[in-house]
Design a protein around this nucleic acid. Structure first.
Lengths: 76, 76
DNA sequence: GCGGATTTGTACGTATGTATG
DNA sequence: GCATACATACGTACAAATCCG
């Protein structure tokens, strides 16, 4: 999923991967994303990198995050 | 400058401090801000915290950053 | 133009606090 | 009370772009 040799930084690649899952409908509105800990294990990156990727999606309005609950795909 | 006991997080306090310098005219448009390394020493916080504060100001459009050059107060 | 110093960007790890379940 | 999950903050290392002597 994450290409060590791609020119794009990891957090950007990860943002793209997650965005695809949302745009494709694999993760519909309201769907809870895996936790940051799960994502870092799944993609083999540090938690800070996961957070950077989620920051991108938050700015795009694609996801919303709640402390203690998790990150969810924004409602349509 | 940074109040250890304030309810606001450090990065937010620091953003406020820097924003004041801009809004007061102490740092006019085009002025080069101190480097992240200098800021972290000046305010006694980690570089990540400095960057978080600058992120806030960048989002507000108050400053612009260039790799290898520095961060500058946005032109009017 | 070269080479070192400076400055920001990315990425890692760790610790602690706060909110939720 | 305990486990889960995100927020903040620290530190470190290296890469990339730029600046300057």
């Amino acid at each position: 999923m994450i290409d060590e040799w791609a020119p794009e930084p990891f957090f950007e690649q990860l943002a793209n991967v997650l965005r695809s899952k949302i745009n494709s409908g694999e993760w519909p509105p309201g769907h809870k994303l895996p936790s940051e800990t799960t994502l870092q294990q799944t993609y083999g990156v540090a938690r800070g990198t996961v957070r950077a990727a989620l920051d991108v999606l938050r700015e795009e309005g694609l996801v919303v995050t709640f402390v203690g609950r998790g990150t969810f795909v924004s409602p349509k």
